[in-house]
Amino acid sequence: MSSMTPQPIIDEKVKKILDLVKKGDSKGDLILALGRLLSVKASGGNPSVYSVTKEIRRSIELVSKSGIDIIMAKYTNPPFDSEALNTAYRILLEELLKKLDEEMKDMQPMWRNKLINLVIENIYNIATAGETEEYKNQILKILKEDRNESSK
């Protein structure tokens, strides 16, 4: 029997969102994808870094500082009211946590904290950037299309 992590069931809406925001599998691609996804949460006014990224920071710190399992950390405090957005978020977060966990294994705590802060800052900057607005609009369109289909 395999000890593989069970993969979430990816419905068509989640697949469309992931295809939209994620362009590759590198750490940078995952940071971009999470920022694009969190642009939905960051809309309206001038949101704080904390309000946009608190769930990601908490998950990264749980894995890197506490040794909490990645699976447990990715299910801690989903940031969205939408199940599709939360599923896409968990998929991206798990991939990022795996990359960061491997990278931070041999780092001193000071450097680990610097890396966490840099990752969080980049995700926030992407989520609130003007050029990310189009991703937010397309994500909202995908979510709206599904509601329109289910009401027919």
Rank of each mutant, 00 (worst) to 15 (best):
S59C: 08
T53E: 10
M1K: 10
T5H: 11
S39E: 02
I71K: 07
L85E: 08
L97C: 08
N46E: 14
K22P: 01
M1C: 07
S43Q: 15
D11V: 10
D29H: 14
I142Q: 00
S66K: 13
L62P: 00
T132E: 10
I71A: 11
N148C: 01
S151Y: 07
S51C: 00
K105G: 04
T53H: 03
I139S: 06
V52G: 05
N148H: 05
A73V: 10
G24R: 09
I31K: 06
E149L: 08
L38A: 02
A42R: 00
D69F: 03
L20C: 02
G24F: 06
E103F: 11
K15E: 13
P8T: 13
R147I: 11
V40C: 12
D19S: 14
K23I: 07
L140I: 12
D106Y: 09
L20S: 01
T53C: 14
K152D: 13
R90H: 04
E12F: 07
I116P: 09
D146L: 12
Y124E: 04
A129V: 03
G35C: 08
I17P: 02
Y124F: 15
D106W: 02
S66I: 02
N86P: 04
I116W: 12
R90D: 06
N46Y: 13
R57F: 04
R57V: 05
I9H: 13
I70H: 04
M72Q: 15
A129D: 14
N137T: 05
M1R: 11
M72R: 12
L115E: 10
Q138D: 08
D81S: 09
L100M: 13
N117P: 01
I126F: 09
K136F: 00
V14P: 02
K16R: 15
E94N: 12
E61M: 11
E131P: 00
T53V: 14
T76S: 11
I120Q: 04
Q108E: 11
N46K: 15
E149H: 06
V119Y: 03
P78G: 11
I116C: 11
